[in-house]
Computed example of a mutant assay.
Amino acid sequence: MGGSPSSTRAAWNVHVAWLCIGEDSRRVEDGDIQVCEMLARYVPVVAVVTKARSDQGFRDEVQRLLPQARNVMRVRALAETDDEGHTLQPRGLTELVDITMERHSTRGRGRTSACSRSHPGAPCR
């Protein structure tokens, strides 16, 4: 990497934090809340609901319990096939990267395209 030592160090700083919560558990732990509060003092936080299969209001619950999170994204990294042969395709990864890059480039000032694309009508903070 080129550049001055200070710009090189800045490139390695944390600019956005992902707080991952498994959708299977259907709960946000006290530790998750504390970590989110601590991280949000320093960087924008995106709550990531992993293994997304059936929301049933869980995304809204995560948003309610983690108000410091700038957004809540539901993702499924791998395709899954259930016992009846129905396949759930990966979802949300592109939008998560878009949100992350947007948060990094604006340092949390903007609430534009990627957020509204991923959850139309949902609050983007």
Rank of each mutant, 00 (worst) to 15 (best):
V75H: 00
S54V: 07
E102G: 05
V97R: 07
V75M: 04
G85D: 11
V48A: 05
G92N: 01
S105E: 15
Q34N: 13
A114K: 06
Q89K: 14
V43H: 03
Q68L: 01
T94F: 11
G108N: 08
R59W: 04
V72K: 04
V72S: 02
D55W: 09
V45W: 00
V72H: 02
R76M: 13
R76L: 15
V46L: 15
D83W: 11
E95T: 07
G110E: 12
V43R: 09
E61A: 01
R91K: 13
E102K: 01
P120I: 08
S105R: 15
Q68S: 14
R64N: 11
A52N: 06
D60P: 03
G57V: 13
E80V: 13
V75S: 03
L93N: 03
D55H: 10
G57R: 14
R76Q: 14
S105D: 15
E37Y: 03
V75W: 02
E84Q: 11
A47D: 01
T112H: 09
V72L: 09
L96P: 00
A52Y: 05
R53G: 14
R109A: 15
M73D: 00
G57T: 09
V46R: 00
N71I: 08
R41Y: 02
S105I: 10
E95C: 07
R64L: 06
D83P: 01
Q56R: 15
L96D: 00
L93C: 09
E37M: 05
M73W: 02
L96S: 03
V45M: 01
H86P: 00
P67T: 04
G108Q: 08
C36R: 00
Y42G: 03
L65Q: 11
R53E: 14
Y42K: 11
L66W: 02
Q68D: 12
T100W: 02
D60C: 10
V97S: 07
V75E: 03
Y42E: 14
R59T: 06
D55T: 12
